[in-house]
Design a protein around this nucleic acid. Sequence first.
DNA 1: ATATCGACCTGCTAGC
DNA 2: TGCTAGCAGGTCGATA
Length: 270
Amino acid sequence: MPELPEVEVTRRGIAPLLDGAKITGIRLGKSLRWPLGCETEDLLGQKIHQVRRRGKYLLLDLDQGILLIHLGMSGRLGFFYKEEPPSKHDHFDLVTSSGILRLHDPRRFGAVVWAPSEQEGMGAKLLGHLGAEPLFVDFDVDAFINKLKKRHTAVKQVLLSGSIVVGVGNIYANEVLFLARIDPRKDASKISARKARALADAIQQVLRQAIDDGGASLKDFRAVHGEYGLFQIHAKVYGRAKEPCTVCKRPIKMIQQGQRSTYFCSYCQR
DNA sequence: ATATCGACCTGCTAGC
DNA sequence: TGCTAGCAGGTCGATA
């Protein structure tokens, strides 16, 4: 579910609810990917100053340090104004003066982790290697092109690795490469500067569109108040094996790359 | 550095 | 109808 657009849609949903709120309680359910990294009492009374996003992580700036939230594969955040009993897959509650932020995550690949800062402790470990933010105003297309040139791996793997640009997961990697008309198997270093520029444009265009649409609702994504996204209507290749390409009508192919499914049109993407 | 693979955990569905 | 194998949005860590 959650690639950059879904996380950003979630951030926009919770930021106005949490900005300036004070933490009054924590409820931990089944363990998530990592332990919280501090005593729950340490968080009580702390104010949430801002809700930011870095890659697919949400960052809550506190009086002391930051709270990192990752949605993993199946995570979703909900917000409640009054107490509600947690259901089966609700594994974390952040009780605040404004309401309760609740993480629902059936597969538990998600995480809620406290770190002293983005550069220290778990912050450094989880965020330190991340590439550039494709939708921030300082995104440097030339730097992106130069870094692609140095990677001797299939371009789709490079996108998924997050080491050059963050936020592009399996759905959007497929869509972006289709839009830029690049074969997902193409060695990144062999992509022309012109194509690399088209790729950067496609990343920004697809992610922005997906955010505007409220995120992908392939499967089960919902925004904070339960809204569905519309991106599935725009997916051109993802999940469409054997269906006709929207451009040339030839069947979409599905292959495996790094144990993940890749969808593409071998005629349009050359 | 890079590439591959296993691991984490649960739910859903296609196919028999 | 019921069972099973395979697949799913992510990403870390071990291994060559």
